[in-house]
């Protein structure tokens, strides 16, 4: 589990987070949403130990990321938004870094590359941006880390590739033979500490909410210096009602015109069921920060 407590962070004099507290529970695919510059990437970097908090704590499974303990590092992988590749092929690249990860699975990597329709023996330099991104995604998934942090993973992907992305992420999470492959990848000499495979926790930071709408649950919405929302779809739909109708509602926290009518985001006073629209949710939260915080009143203790 990732626990962030009273965390402050700033770049020189520009405050990014002020006294925020947040939890990421195991085995979920979190959607980390927020406007440009609210600190989504910074949050991922703090969790992966690439940035250090100014105050407060960030703890990942009893490890403090800023200490860069090797056991912590072999259980987490951060895939940045910007594709940076070496003058090599994906298979050479993954073999080079894979040796450091006890649950790295080369066969799984090859399967993923096949599924994502990228040739693992082709040089990165000869690939398109989307192919590079898919190759690196395959690399990241094949390391089988407990925590996988993906920063804008669908940026630059074409429509079929976005569908493939969702497919491999879902497969990765529900893979039933995960534990078996962990054991086989670790070998007989490995200890349970390094081989205790778990259902991975994935945090996806993105602007493209529609690309990951059916993938993420729970959702974390960051705002300037604070966390606006950290809730599961179940919690969201129990507290907010997404009305797809032909008319605008005066009571709506947010209204948006959609083909054939409007989508109104209302407080769910009567316990009605509705399908969460992440984009509308995001705008509703952004425009009614205090109201939404009062409605949820949990998850983001400021």
């Amino acid at each position: 589990m990732i626990t962030i407590n009273n965390l402050d962070f700033s770049y020189k004099n520009v405050a990014v987070f002020k006294n925020i507290s947040l939890e990421f529970k195991e085995g979920n695919v979190y959607g980390l949403l927020g406007e440009n510059g609210v600190g989504k990437t910074t949050m991922l970097k703090i969790i992966s130990g690439l940035q250090f908090p100014k105050n407060g704590t960030c703890v990942v499974d009893d490890f403090i990321p800023s200490e860069r303990n090797p056991y912590f590092l072999q259980n987490i992988f951060y895939l940045p938004e910007e594709v940076i590749t070496e003058d090599t092929t994906p298979e050479k690249f993954i073999n080079k870094i894979g040796v450091f990860y006890p649950r790295y699975d080369y066969a799984y990597f090859l399967n993923l590359m096949k599924e994502l329709e990228v040739d693992p023996s082709r040089k990165f330099n000869a690939m398109s941006y989307g192919q590079k991104k898919k190759s690196l995604l395959a690399c990241a998934l094949s390391l089988r880390t407990d925590y996988l942090l993906l920063d804008e993973p669908t940026n630059g992907l074409d429509i079929p590739s976005k569908a493939l992305f969702r497919k491999v992420i879902l497969q990765h999470c529900v893979s039933t033979d995960l534990a078996d492959s962990h054991v086989s990848a670790c070998g007989q000499n490995s200890t349970s500490d390094t081989c205790g495979g778990r259902v991975p926790t994935i945090i996806i930071s993105t602007h493209q909410v529609k690309d990951v709408e059916n993938l993420i649950d729970p959702i974390v919405i960051l705002d300037h210096e604070e966390v606006l929302l950290n809730a599961t779809f179940e919690e969201i739909s129990s507290k907010l009602y997404f009305d797809y109708g032909s008319e605008k509602s005066d009571e709506a926290l947010y209204t948006e015109m959609i083909p054939g009518g409007y989508i109104n985001v209302l407080q769910n006073k009567y316990g009605m069921e509705s399908k969460v629209n992440v984009e509308a949710l995001f705008n509703a939260v952004r425009n009614n920060k205090k109201v939404v915080r009062d409605i949820f009143a949990v998850g983001c203790e400021q």
Binding site: R68, N69, P70, P80, E82, I97, F100
Partner: peptide, 16 residues
């Protein structure tokens, strides 16, 4: 700041 992340994330201690 971009290319060095992989080096830092390599699961080995700073001493190594």
């Amino acid at each position: 700041s971009r290319k060095g992340m992989l080096y830092s994330m390599t699961p080995a201690s700073s001493l190594e």
